[in-house]
């Protein structure tokens, strides 16, 4: 077990390292004209060279990378090119937004997805199963931005213009924090109120995959011999499903959940863009369009750390639940 953990940890670190190299190379090695953009139209070559020098872009690539990694290890991801804010503070400001979206949606989609998956699997080929299956496929096929646009159009725009302002306009409201003169709202209910539409959008799209996944996994487990034995012993069907089958059927689902949650926590570009929430996804998209390299690389690095850590935890839980995994 110790060997297993050790190997996984080393592998995880290696992946983070490779991701950092990959993102760094991708952005810093590619031709970019940050300096030209920043300097404006009338810039002389000298000004551009000066800006490049100030940003460290005139150093050899490996030097830039070494410098970047060295500072990153000390918790410093650099400063953004335009406003000189530290990347760490940008991430700290944006992370609660992304985490709020991801965790709320995750709870919803697990309830919806796993619940409907179990209902489907317990009575395969019933009307319910087929209906859920069709529903799941429709949402599965629906791009997030299409569903989100529809929800905004009908639930916000149409309802509000009909005089029922049940759902708020786009924008994020913090749960905690000091009252802000520009945005006086905060607290649990306003927070939740503003997040309902993003949650529903994200949850419906993701739940669809979980319905299908849970159903398949559950069907497979329910056909195993030990389930037949349990039934033959006269154990009630409810007990068979919830006590005997669910545990092994949900193991792969939970694995997938860990990884999905980590990826979403790293920013949901489309949802954040659609609902005007300035989380990690929105910030990185903005950074990408502005060629704000330190911000892009910083966020991508943090996100990949999320994913690697989630993978590691999932592997660990899996190894505890299923000792066979430890063999490799």
């Amino acid at each position: 077990m110790i060997r297993f953990i050790f190997v996984r940890l080393i592998t995880g670190l290696l992946v983070v390292f490779l991701v950092s190299v990959a993102t760094f190379l991708m952005f810093f090695a590619a031709p970019n004209d940050v300096a030209r953009t920043m300097a404006g139209k009338a810039a002389t070559p000298e000004t551009i060279a000066l800006i490049n020098h100030r940003l460290g872009l005139d150093q050899p690539l490996w030097h830039q990378y070494g410098h970047f990694i060295w500072r990153a290890l000390h918790g410093d991801l650099g400063y953004d090119y335009y406003h000189q804010r530290s990347v760490v503070s940008i991430i700290k400001g944006a992370a609660p937004v992304s985490l709020s979206i991801a965790f709320g949606a995750a709870i919803l989609w697990m309830i919806l997805g796993v619940g409907s998956g179990i209902i489907s699997a317990v009575r395969p080929r019933s009307f319910m199963d087929r209906a859920l299956n069709v529903l799941a496929l429709i949402f599965y096929s629906m791009p997030t931005f299409v569903l989100g646009s529809m929800l905004l159009f009908f639930l916000y725009f149409k309802l509000t213009s009909a005089g029922h302002a049940w759902f708020p306009a786009a924008g994020y409201v913090p749960w905690f924090g000091k009252p802000d003169p520009s945005n006086p709202q905060h607290g649990f209910w306003p927070w939740m109120h503003h997040l309902i539409l993003p949650w529903v959008t994200l949850a419906l799209v993701t739940a669809a995959a979980y319905t299908r996944f849970t159903r398949g996994s559950m069907l497979e487990v329910l056909s195993e011999d030990y389930i037949r034995t349990a039934r033959a012993k006269g154990i009630s069907e409810r007990r068979v499903v919830f006590r005997h089958a669910l545990r092994s059927a949900l193991t792969p689902v939970v694995t997938q959940f860990g990884i999905d949650l980590a990826i979403l926590a790293g920013g949901t570009v489309v949802t954040e863009q659609l609902f005007g929430m300035h989380g990690l996804g929105w910030n990185s998209l903005t950074a990408i369009t502005n060629q704000d390299l330190p911000v892009i690389v910083g966020i991508l690095l943090v996100v990949s750390v999320f994913v690697v850590v989630a993978n590691f935890l999932v592997d660990l839980i899996y190894a505890v639940l299923d000792p066979r995994v430890r063999l490799y």
Partner: peptide, 19 residues
């Protein structure tokens, strides 16, 4: 592992922006 650890939409957007 590296490709699967990258957030797809974000990284795709980034690549398109670069290339």
């Amino acid at each position: 592992d590296v490709v699967l650890a990258l957030p797809v939409v974000l990284a795709a957007v980034a690549l398109v922006a670069v290339f």
